[in-house]
Design a protein around this nucleic acid. Structure first.
Lengths: 147, 147
DNA sequence: ACAGATTACATCGTGTACGATATAATTGAG
DNA sequence: CTCAATTATATCGTACACGATGTAATCTGT
């Protein structure tokens, strides 16, 4: 029954995404960051001085979603906004010194907790079953007090 | 570099979940339902008369998330709440006639749009790459006016 | 050069999603 | 049997996530 199967796939993705967000929340809490906020920093670490629309495109988010995230990052001193000299509509986003300095520490913290995911990304059968095992594993990680 | 790889996996899941939600939103709009609301109905279609905590467990959501969803379903006449006779703390959730009658139509609407996902769930290499192709495909579907 | 279309961004309203906290009912250890 | 721990649910504050709408700047065709 293809209906059932498809449902399972979408549902597994839904649960996996929620669990990933929770897992990252625990790790990023130390730095007072959420997962979407961290994604913006990731994009800027790869390439500084990007516009809002570029970040939207990379994260597959609308400006209505991105703006409150950027607002938080501004308030907490991770990024800066500067109007573009060439295009008065555009706003350029820059990393602050803090964001540049914390990069290594944040990456390190994530590496320590999530190295185990190598295993999940390479081995096993179908997408749905992989996601199911991913979810089981994430559930375990999320229930651990050690994190 | 395991850090990068893991990031990709999580990020792909994140994007896939967002896109699935958008895709379902378009299909379910006809019935004035959102994806989480539909998930609750799915759980109750499988087995009527469940408690809030059972639904929480099945959907992997907290009561703080589920309650506003249930509230909406109540307001729109999809479900009913009855205090359990055996346990005065517990609230039993029931499908209304409307929810029972609409089941087939909703399943039909989803089947029509999402039959194509058979393909994605069975074929191809690693989890990350499967999710990447899933995202490409979802992006295409989400950008189509026909939906 | 200039009106209309497009683009970049902002804001708003609705709906999740989470953890923390609160309350009432039930359970269980003594 | 009783009171402390647990369980079921509710509520609150914060933070996305989306589509719709609004506004100003840029681009385009003529």
């Amino acid at each position: 029954m293809p209906y059932k199967l498809e449902h399972q796939l979408c549902f597994e993705v839904y649960k996996a995404a929620n669990q990933f967000t929770k897992l990252y929340a625990k790790i990023l809490k130390t730095f007072d960051l959420t997962y979407p906020q961290y994604l913006v920093l990731l994009a800027l670490w790869e390439k500084d001085a990007q516009t809002s629309s570029t970040i939207c495109e990379k994260l597959n988010l609308g400006i209505g979603t991105l703006n409150p995230v950027l607002q938080k990052l501004l308030e907490k001193g991770w990024i800066l906004k500067q109007p573009s000299p060439t295009d008065k509509r555009a706003t350029m986003l820059f990393l602050t010194k803090k964001a540049q300095q914390q990069k290594q520490h944040i990456e390190q913290a994530i590496l320590e907790k999530l190295l185990c995911f190598d295993y999940l990304a390479t081995e096993g059968p179908s997408l749905k079953e992989k996601l199911q095992r991913l979810n089981e594993f994430l559930l375990l990680l999320n229930s651990e007090e050690s994190l």
